[in-house]
Amino acid sequence: MLETSEIKNILIIGITGGLAQITAKIISKKMPGVNIIGIDVRDVGNIPPIPGLTCQKVKYSRGNFEKIFRSHDLDVVLHLGRITHANAASQNVHKRLDLSVVGTNTILDLCMKSSIKKIVILSTFHVYGAYPDNPVFIKEDAPLRASIKYPDLRDVVEMDQIATNWVWKNQNQIKGVVLRPCNIIGAQIKNTISQYLAYKYAPYPIDFNPIFQFIHEYDMAHVIYRSITEVPTGTYNVAPNEYISLKNALKKLETPGIPIPVSVVGSIAGFLKSFRRGIPEYLIDYIKFSCLIDNSELKKHLGEDFCKFKIGDALKLINLR
């Protein structure tokens, strides 16, 4: 297991993301003296100052990554730079494939060439897909079926597969952890489900009521931080022990919502998508069928209660957005 004393430089890819910044704050607090290099394709000017953190706006090209890897003696890489589907501007699947899949491949290749000790890669539970025959709960070795129905999700699945294969293949040289978190909720998180729940009149199905898992952004950031030193090589689902039905979650949020039969919800999503409001079509299945993940593997390393926040606390953050 990697010791904290062995870590001097940490690279965080995707630093403009809310989760990356919280992770940087935790690292800065828990590992004072460690240099944190944050990079992103987006503008880094608005990132609040965090002790030990230096940020750069870079294009995710092989040349730029090589420069960063050469100029810093990196020990740990946190790859949190997956392009979210929630951002309407990034809904072009070719662009996402280029950034998430080709970008990830480049990063992994450079990690191998440099003397990186540990890499933590953020994937998502969406890789399993929302299907009516999903078991409760899905284990890490379940097939990744998301892109079978929605080719739009193939960047997510391919990135996960590249990362998972790579960490196992190179386990003797580099320690690698792939995290598949459930829905991350936070005031600064701009993912699909947060956007959906934040709509005051979010359409919800009257004919289905799936069960959801939500993780608070601080809990998720702590899992990423603890994965650096406490979690051995492997792929891990990340979810708290609690779960809630979609209708109860909307009730807790005091969101009036609009109850609609699911076929109409599908059409509305298509309509909103055409107006670039950012509700991807695949989300319809996630609000129809449960996609609950099993967290027992991660609990073996982080303990039974690795999440400190209750589901209600996480949902409260939606209203703070």
């Binding site: 025959d133 004919d207 289905f208 009521n209 069928f289």
Partner: peptide
């Protein structure tokens, strides 16, 4: 049966009544 959980209303109704998709893992 697997197909029942994809039927509108029926899936939710059966789940609320305690039924579970017939799957080994479940």
């Amino acid at each position: 049966e697997r197909f029942l959980s994809s039927i509108p209303f029926a899936g939710e109704f059966l789940a609320k009544g305690g039924s579970v998709l017939g799957d080994r893992q479940n």
